[in-house]
Simulated assay, not measured.
Amino acid sequence: MTNLSWLQSLQAIARTGSFTRAAEQLGLTQAAVSQHIRQLEDHYGSVVLRSARPLALTPTGQLLLSYADEITAANDCLKQRLQANDSLQGDVGLVTPGSSGLLLYADLLALQLNQPGLIIRHRFAPGAEVQQAVLDNSYQIGLLTFKPEDPRLQAEEIAEEPLELVYPAGYQIRQWQDLQQLGFINHPDGKAMATRLLSRHFPGNPGVATLPCKGYSNQVSLLLQPVALGLGFTVVPRYARQAFAAQDKIAVLQCGQPVIDTLWAIYRAEWPLNARCRLVLERIRRTLNTAAASQTR
């Protein structure tokens, strides 16, 4: 590869038409600039510059000057891209579980409205897909309910998310038989979540499998609609319940020993998040912490 200092001296001579003025522009001695031109000629085995006045580039010199200009343009382009990478304008890819995603979505839209040029791509996905999407670099930030072990991922503890038993408003749940009478509204993680939570509420219970299934949905945004209609109960993360519009139609069973998951924000460990990703991540943290605080007042 050609030494960049040699090419910069050639560019300066072409701009100024003088070894002396080129040296002044570059902050070098005239001898250093002359040496750079000799080194170019030695390297390419051809005269680069005719010393007759005015100075004139040879055909080889013209080719080298064009090459130097291309390198300068490429460097300028790289600088612009690096600056843009640290701008608050541009794309941010976010992939989250449905529960936290429902609560975050409206607030992230508000952030976009207040931050012109920011574009947030938000996808809902289960945990394994969240992790893979970040590893594939198709999304910069993901949220998980477990801390990943993959060394390629950096994880930040961002919030806590309790599980909740949600049932129709006006219904009374005092014992296991009340759950059997009401029935269970299942979802992809429903039985696993219910098993964890019900073991705290009802120690020694005969198991979720003994409860009649009254419905199923793989859309967390729709899951509480049958509960609100009185068709059954379910177990969901708190953020999914908080995002449901008809809060007056549902109730939450209070538990003395809650089951709480930690939410982790993940991103690639090899490089830091850029400014706009960090802005989105801090907005997520604030939104989730505000939601958590509202439950303790």
Rank of each mutant, 00 (worst) to 15 (best):
M1D: 10
N3H: 07
N3W: 06
Q11V: 10
A12D: 04
A12P: 07
A12G: 03
A23I: 11
E24W: 12
Q30S: 00
A31L: 13
A31W: 11
S34G: 06
Q35H: 04
Q39S: 12
D42G: 05
D42T: 11
S51V: 05
A52M: 12
A52Q: 13
R53L: 14
L55Q: 05
P59A: 13
T60R: 15
T60S: 14
G61H: 09
Q62N: 12
A68D: 07
D69I: 10
E70M: 01
E70V: 03
E70F: 08
C77P: 00
L78C: 06
A84W: 08
A84I: 00
S87P: 12
S87W: 08
G93M: 03
V95K: 02
T96L: 09
T96A: 14
P97N: 10
S99T: 08
S100M: 08
L102G: 00
Y105K: 11
A106V: 10
L108E: 10
L108R: 02
L108P: 01
A110N: 11
A110W: 05
Q112G: 03
Q112Y: 01
Q115P: 05
I120S: 04
I120R: 02
I120E: 02
H122Q: 10
F124D: 08
V130P: 07
A133Q: 09
D136E: 13
N137K: 09
S138N: 09
G142S: 08
G142V: 02
F146I: 04
P148Q: 05
P148Y: 07
E149C: 06
P151R: 14
A155L: 07
P162L: 04
V166F: 14
A169I: 05
I173M: 07
R174F: 00
Q177F: 02
Q177S: 14
D178N: 11
Q180C: 08
L182R: 01
G183R: 00
G183A: 10
G183K: 05
I185F: 01
D189I: 06
G190L: 03
K191S: 11
A192Y: 09
L197G: 12
L198E: 09
H201F: 04
F202D: 12
V208F: 03
T210Y: 03
P212R: 09
K214D: 00
G215R: 06
S217N: 14
L222S: 13
L224W: 07
V227L: 12
L229K: 15
L229P: 01
G230P: 10
L231F: 15
G232Q: 11
G232W: 03
F233T: 11
A243P: 05
A245S: 02
A245Q: 14
K249W: 00
K249S: 12
A251Q: 15
A251H: 07
L253C: 04
C255E: 01
C255D: 14
V259Y: 12
T262Y: 09
L263I: 10
I266T: 02
L273V: 01
N274Y: 02
A275C: 04
L279T: 13
R283M: 05
I284G: 00
T287Q: 12
L288T: 00
L288E: 04
A291V: 13
A292T: 06
A293W: 03
A293H: 07
A293N: 09
S294Y: 01
S294C: 06
